[in-house]
Computed example of a mutant assay.
Amino acid sequence: MKTITNYRATVLKKTRLYLYGVVMTLGLSTAPFILPAQTKAPLPAVGTQAILGNIDGINIEVAVQSPSAENTPLQIACVFEYNDNDIFAPPALPQEANGMVHLDKGLNGIITGLRKSGKFTGQAFETLLIDVPNGTIAPQKLLLVGLGDRRKFDAEMMKTVGAIGMREALRLGVDSYAHASDLKDGGVDSPTGLVATNVLKGAIDAYRTQVYLKSKQMSNFKPIKKITLLAGQPFYQITGDALKKAID
């Protein structure tokens, strides 16, 4: 009887050790999948900014900022052709994170009013320059650039948008300006890095054209010292990495 009892005790002990080993093995095997969620980097704070490099004497900056709050002589913002309520409802970004909504509300609804009435249709590469009234938004001037039909958006067109922004900056004689593509604000899930790169390429190509004309005594302009590309908090790192690669 004692032998049977000892046998049962031995079996029970081995079973417990086996189960403990299984639990420990499962715990260790799942640990690597738990750790990344625990160590996820926080989003950059609003106001975060960095100079990424310099091209032809122009500092290239990326910043987490709403276009309505960016202190700049010229703010460029992009809009698609008007659809009812298009910047206020999904798939557009939530209003608290939507730079175009901030611009519109800061200017007492003028952007929506212009678009809804057809005074500014937002056709591809259409532009409208607004002198910003005192006591509204931070930029001194706002340039709206149309992107056309959102269903036909192609990131390649952002090279032309970048060139348009640079040419307007040179025409106005400012020495710096900020660019906000506002694609996700308008509900288009665009390739963030490629869009930023194309905007920069277009701007630099346009600048070099004017430098060439100046060498032929066919242009006279004030040099641009800085271009700031604005990015939302979740897209700051992606934008910065893409721009650094383009600068290099």
Rank of each mutant, 00 (worst) to 15 (best):
residue 182 D to I: 01
residue 6 N to R: 14
residue 192 T to N: 09
residue 4 I to M: 07
residue 23 V to P: 06
residue 187 G to P: 05
residue 174 V to W: 01
residue 119 K to R: 15
residue 123 Q to F: 13
residue 161 V to Q: 03
residue 49 Q to P: 05
residue 64 V to E: 01
residue 154 D to M: 03
residue 124 A to F: 08
residue 151 R to H: 15
residue 218 M to C: 05
residue 13 K to N: 05
residue 74 L to I: 02
residue 124 A to W: 02
residue 53 G to D: 15
residue 56 D to G: 15
residue 214 K to S: 02
residue 86 D to W: 15
residue 37 A to E: 01
residue 147 L to V: 09
residue 8 R to L: 00
residue 54 N to F: 06
residue 54 N to I: 14
residue 185 D to M: 08
residue 234 P to H: 07
residue 169 A to C: 08
residue 21 G to K: 06
residue 178 A to P: 01
residue 25 T to I: 14
residue 155 A to S: 13
residue 247 I to D: 15
residue 56 D to M: 14
residue 69 A to Y: 15
residue 136 T to E: 11
residue 182 D to G: 00
residue 7 Y to Q: 12
residue 12 L to A: 06
residue 219 S to A: 12
residue 81 E to Y: 03
residue 218 M to D: 06
residue 170 L to F: 03
residue 85 N to D: 09
residue 248 D to G: 12
residue 192 T to E: 02
residue 14 K to A: 04
residue 140 Q to S: 15
residue 44 P to D: 02
residue 217 Q to L: 08
residue 67 P to S: 04
residue 190 S to A: 14
residue 205 D to E: 12
residue 58 I to L: 14
residue 209 T to L: 01
residue 155 A to W: 00
residue 88 F to P: 11
residue 2 K to C: 01
residue 242 A to W: 04
residue 91 P to Q: 10
residue 87 I to L: 03
residue 203 A to R: 10
residue 237 Q to L: 13
residue 223 P to N: 00
residue 93 L to C: 07
residue 162 G to Q: 12
residue 170 L to K: 01
residue 106 G to S: 08
residue 183 L to H: 02
residue 126 E to Q: 10
residue 111 I to A: 12
residue 209 T to K: 07
residue 55 I to F: 04
residue 105 K to N: 10
residue 132 V to H: 11
residue 174 V to D: 04
residue 6 N to W: 06
residue 223 P to E: 00
residue 35 L to C: 02
residue 180 A to R: 08
residue 77 A to S: 12
residue 2 K to M: 06
residue 5 T to Y: 12
residue 126 E to W: 04
residue 103 L to G: 06
residue 221 F to R: 10
residue 40 K to L: 07
residue 143 L to Q: 11
residue 13 K to S: 03
residue 171 R to V: 00
residue 6 N to K: 12
residue 51 I to C: 11
residue 206 A to Y: 04
residue 246 A to F: 08
residue 146 G to C: 11
residue 142 L to A: 10
residue 74 L to T: 03
residue 149 D to S: 10
residue 92 A to N: 06
residue 88 F to T: 11
residue 229 L to N: 01
residue 125 F to Q: 10
residue 31 A to P: 01
residue 32 P to Y: 09
residue 34 I to V: 14
residue 210 Q to F: 10
residue 50 A to G: 03
residue 185 D to L: 08
residue 102 H to Y: 07
residue 201 K to S: 09
residue 168 E to A: 02
residue 6 N to F: 02
residue 145 V to N: 07
residue 233 Q to G: 10
